[in-house]
């Protein structure tokens, strides 16, 4: 994934847009779960980890005095395309809290086919039995291939299936695939 700051793409979310979206997601998590006592944020390696951290910070800002459980998960060993394409594991999974009975909010940057989320759901099983698993994403770009839907969305952005979506703290950039540009012109 290319850096969001690179030239040649359309900026669809600025850094202010992102921080507003994250604050809103934090409020929705609080509202929906009536607090965060049992909530554990699990960022998906690698793109989801900084967003999970940002959501944790937002939650702790909104509810002074609480500490929100957080961790990260690498799903490369659970993917369904192992052996089909090169897979390089991201940083190792880091989950130190017992997930049994907790509400896990999986966090990722972009929701696309849903296959990574499926892998994450399988991976979470190996860490216990959460009471519920919810899904927070910064961008939902559509094109789902599995029955998976997000609980919290920063922004829905319709894309062509082979457009490139780049996300980092400075913004979200979409680079249109070549034929998409041609159709648009």
């Amino acid at each position: 994934m290319s850096s969001a700051g690179s030239l040649g793409g359309a900026v669809v979310l600025t850094s202010q847009d992102i921080s507003r979206a994250i604050t809103r997601i934090a409020h929705e998590i609080l509202e929906r779960n009536r607090g965060v006592d049992d909530v554990v944020l699990v960022g998906m390696q690698r793109g989801g980890v900084w967003i999970a951290d940002a959501i944790k910070a937002a939650l702790e800002r909104v509810e002074p005095g609480v500490s929100v459980g957080a961790g990260s998960i690498d799903v490369s060993m659970y993917r369904d395309d192992i052996g089909i394409r090169p897979i390089v594991p991201a940083a190792a999974t880091d989950i130190t809290v017992d997930l049994s009975g907790r509400t896990v909010v999986l966090v990722d940057d972009v929701l696309y086919t849903g296959r990574t989320v499926r892998a994450a759901l399988e991976a979470l099983n190996d860490y216990g039995r959460p009471r519920a698993v919810q899904l927070a994403v910064l961008v939902d770009r559509g094109h789902r291939e599995l029955p998976i839907r997000p609980d919290y969305v920063g922004k829905n952005i319709p894309t062509h299936f082979d457009d490139e979506v780049a996300v980092d703290e400075s913004g979200v950039v979409i680079t249109l695939a070549k034929h998409t540009k041609e159709n648009a012109s």
Partner: peptide, 23 residues
């Protein structure tokens, strides 16, 4: 580096991943 990753798997309550299912 990948062995670090695998070492973490070995510390889990269920030290097993489905990576090479069917192999």
């Amino acid at each position: 580096d990948m062995a670090d990753h695998m070492a973490e798997i070995n510390t889990r309550p269920v030290p097993k991943v489905p990576a090479l299912r069917g192999k």
